[in-house]
Write a protein that binds this DNA or RNA. Sequence first.
DNA 1: ATGTGC
Length: 472
Amino acid sequence: MELVPQGRCRWLLPRQGQMRVPGVVFATRSLLPAAVGDRSLDQVVNVACLPGIVDASYAMPDVHWGYGFPIGGVAATDIEDEGVVSPGGVGFDISCGVRLLVSQIHRNDLCGELGELMNALGRMIPRGTGPGGVLPRCSADELDDILVAGAAHLVARGMGTPDDLKRCESGGTMPGAGPEKVSTRARERGARQVGSLGSGNHFAEVQAVDQVLDPATAEAFGLRTGSVCVLVHCGSRGLGHQVCTDYVRLMDTAMHRYGIHVPDRQLACVPVPSAEGESYLAAMAAAANYGMANRQALTHAIREAFAAAGLGELVLLYDVSHNLAKIETHPVDSHLRTLCVHRKGATRAFPPHHPELPADLAPYGQPVLVPGSMGTASYVLVGVEASPAFHSACHGAGRVLSRHAAARHIPIEKLRSEMAAAGILVRGASTRGLVEEAPESYKDVDEVVRACHEAGLAKPVARLVPLGVVKG
DNA sequence: ATGTGC
């Protein structure tokens, strides 16, 4: 595959065949082989063939192979010029995302109590596949409220504060949700999972700020060297998964009625202004609200554990999804266009003074939360002006070993001893899950963040290191 | 990611 260097940390995949736009990969030279090796760049090329795609098919520095679209892919379509929406461009875990809670305590004040805190978090955080959540069972009416109002519903029932909502993407409620577009099966799966981590790379991690990289922004975000934080990474559980499954199946048959042909069936899509497209976006918004409500319910449990341990308050810095399609306005060839921006394993990164930002954060830009792999650093970045890729950045370290390969190649004793040697307390992880999420399974998050910075996608604010983790 | 397969 031909990759043409295009400046710092930017590589061009020139148009060929059915591509309507070129591909663009943001990566340092050392990150490229991972992307080339796993066929994710073939997926970048496939996405470039979608009807209505504008500008380019983008790959973030943590790109890796996914269903149809690569994970770490960004693609925008012009909704007034044949633009399509594709469930594969959002992913199975709709509204998978991250929120960062910031405490007032310093890591040095925690040392003797960390074990007890992790025990409490381990007891109070539902996790793993299958049912179980902070809300044990939702009635049909309450599930409707969650699908329509998202995190705002949980705040209304006392699990959180109005200030929390100001610090959520879209104020904690993604507009345009259509609960009636969510299947009975999806609702059944979701009713018993509100407030649960799930599995895989989902986690709740107690962290401390290790380095402040942008002092003024870090201060505005409440982050000082040594600050204890909690990073929550989870999504919309079985409900979002079922929504994706339902609409991939629907679009796989429907797209031919619109004369759409794509190079990979997993790119099934329909025009945004079609009955099927509007239904998917309404169901997706409902699942997004479920995802934000899920993180809000977990926040409630985490705050209770902190309070029980006498560790004080946790302020929500921000909650942002990295698996969504959103209707946004962006300049294309210097004309403002209304686009359907698919971010799959990519974080929205709005610049300073964007109207969607809360007033107190607006001078600085949107917090961009980047969870690392287990046992490694995580980052807080901030959106910048003139960012390419429709104001998007990476979403994590990015997998390099498949789950299967990780299980075969990484000895469990080595991993447990490494975590223990680093003083990181682990709660609730199965041996298999632990090995699958080992640092060796992922790219180097420091390198991924460096690529984001040098490519002009976002600016690093603070580096956080793990103290203890509750694994899904 | 996922009641880890239709």
